[in-house]
Design a protein around this nucleic acid. Structure first.
Lengths: 160, 160
DNA sequence: GTCAATTTACTCGGATAGAGTGTGTCCGAGTGGCGAAGG
DNA sequence: CCTTCGCCACTCGGACACACTCTATCCGAGTAAATTGAC
């Protein structure tokens, strides 16, 4: 099982957009340059977050992306769902139905194995839903007090 | 993010091998027939579990696979790790180092985002480690009391 | 009848092709700002 | 000098190739059981 790098990118973008604040829009190219990523592909992930209502997009000169709501109202679960989709990692394909046991009437109840895996998935989702972008920003600011302003400056001032 | 079907297959195999008991070995072909799966590919997963010490393999006539230890001592985490590998789903690629922020000395501490994702991964792993194959067997037997014997019979008797 | 070497058939085990998803890239649609022209 | 119209550059947005992992398969190595022959 492997989670795509896209999620990492999206989280870092939300993180930095949180420090920049909702007043200015940051282009995908600028965010890509800050992280050393391919701009066009990162743009795709930002679009996905825009569809999910996490960020707002504006076109034209001076356009770009900004957080659609407060960092306190954006959980890691929101971001992961926006990028990776809502489906759980484990998907029961009901192989118990394909063999001879399929005739034995064991499909009245939910698959025992599926239930167990769903429970683990739920624990994972709860942990993600319990952490907001604001929490990450606070932890980071606590470790590096001067960094938030530095980040905001980099994004709000012009660059070659 | 998507978990392979292999995990589902492996779990069902452990589940059924638990009911069969450690006295008789079940071939990969028999397990595949019971679930309607490709035998050679399922064999590959059983091999992976053998390498992990979850099942024991024996060659020759009368050979096959059996649980290497009690179902109570096999957790879902063991099976998932054996099939999917020990790496966590989320892997931090340290993109913070690739941009201009890489020069700002933020790599002294662990990546904030990585830490948050690791925490969620840990919750997932704890849930998996807290459930054993024996637990699943007990739940299933509680729902369908007659099934375990029926399963054992199917695997221990000859078939066309 | 007993033992042992041999054969045999059956099993796992790793090396080898094909499909699906994630990764990366491109060009077109839309939009806000800027400048020139007219009143 | 102010207003208005048109142009333009910049942005997002979706459609198009490439790579990698998962899926599936094959044939060879190894082994335990059955067979056969001698003692």
């Amino acid at each position: 099982m492997r989670m795509g790098e896209r999620v990492e990118w999206a989280l870092h973008c939300c993180f930095n957009l949180g420090f920049v604040g909702p007043d200015v829009a940051v282009t995908a190219a600028r965010l890509a340059a800050f992280h050393g990523l391919p701009a066009a592909y990162l743009n795709k992930q930002l679009q996905a977050m825009a569809r999910a209502g996490i960020v707002e997009s504006s076109q034209g000169p001076g356009g770009g992306f900004r957080l659609a709501r407060s960092p306190q109202q954006i959980t890691l679960m929101d971001v992961v769902t926006a990028i990776e989709g809502p489906d759980p990692a484990f998907r029961c394909t009901e192989i118990r139905e394909r063999g001879p046991a399929g005739m034995w009437g064991t499909s009245q109840r939910a698959c025992t194995i599926d239930a167990a895996m769903r429970q683990a998935d739920l624990a994972w989702r709860r942990s993600l839903a319990g952490q907001t972008v604001a929490d990450l920003m606070a932890t980071f600011q606590n470790t590096y007090p001067a960094m938030p302003d530095r980040i905001k400056d980099w994004f709000t001032t012009a660059h070659a």
